[in-house]
Amino acid sequence: MSYRIIRVIGFCFLLTGCAYFSTTTEIEQPTSAYPEPDPQMARQLDAYRDSMNSVMGQKVATVQDTLKFGKPESSLNNIVADALRFQAASTLRQFVHVGITGEESFKLYFVPGKLTVRDVYEFMPYNNHLVVLSMSGEKLMTLIEQVADMGGAPISGVRFRIDEDGNPNSVLVNAQVLDPDETYLVATSSWAANGGDKFPALWNVSDRSDLELSIREVYINYFKNQVELTASTDGRIRR
């Protein structure tokens, strides 16, 4: 109510140039700091942030280079796929042939400096878990065709070249020629296995183990083991 009256008075002043305005000195000034943050709320949040940082601020690894996702392969593509494969292997205490994930679920790229638990949570905001699928070589080849068709995706344990028609050539699995009759273990996220990413070959696989390890734990553990994250590509997917 008071706002409205003050505005109308101010308005009269604008229009007529009368001195009416000067008599209402106790005008409420706008308390807003916009576009700056509300200082009062920022203080309240800082209190919460301080206690959150004891957990979320813990260092996971040091990032040495700027690491990004990219096609056909990139340092961050390779890191996220290797992490799935190696964490699955160490959980199962068994060799795992392939790791694969879509890149759409990841929300950050990495910049040089300290990587914290909080960063990993921002990097992978979803609460999915690790899944290991057992599939035939034939099915694995279908999966690799889907990756090639996308122009590349985060994948580990596989090397191939994408030809002009978008098909995979010279496909090697763990440095050996892919055997259509062999059985391969493929590590991925529950999201991808449930139909979330764009790899239909991962959907409806009957021989599937759901591990009690969240994807975030996968990355936290893997990055901790790596200690330093550096830019490196190994030509696993070539054009």
Binding site: Y3, E28, P30, S32, Y34, P35, E36, P37, D38, M41
Partner: peptide, 18 residues
């Protein structure tokens, strides 16, 4: 984004609108 920035914008609009 940012909730404290949203808050200052809401405060500004509340000052302008009854």
């Amino acid at each position: 984004g940012g909730i404290a920035k949203r808050s200052s914008l809401v405060k500004k609009i509340r000052f302008e609108e009854k």
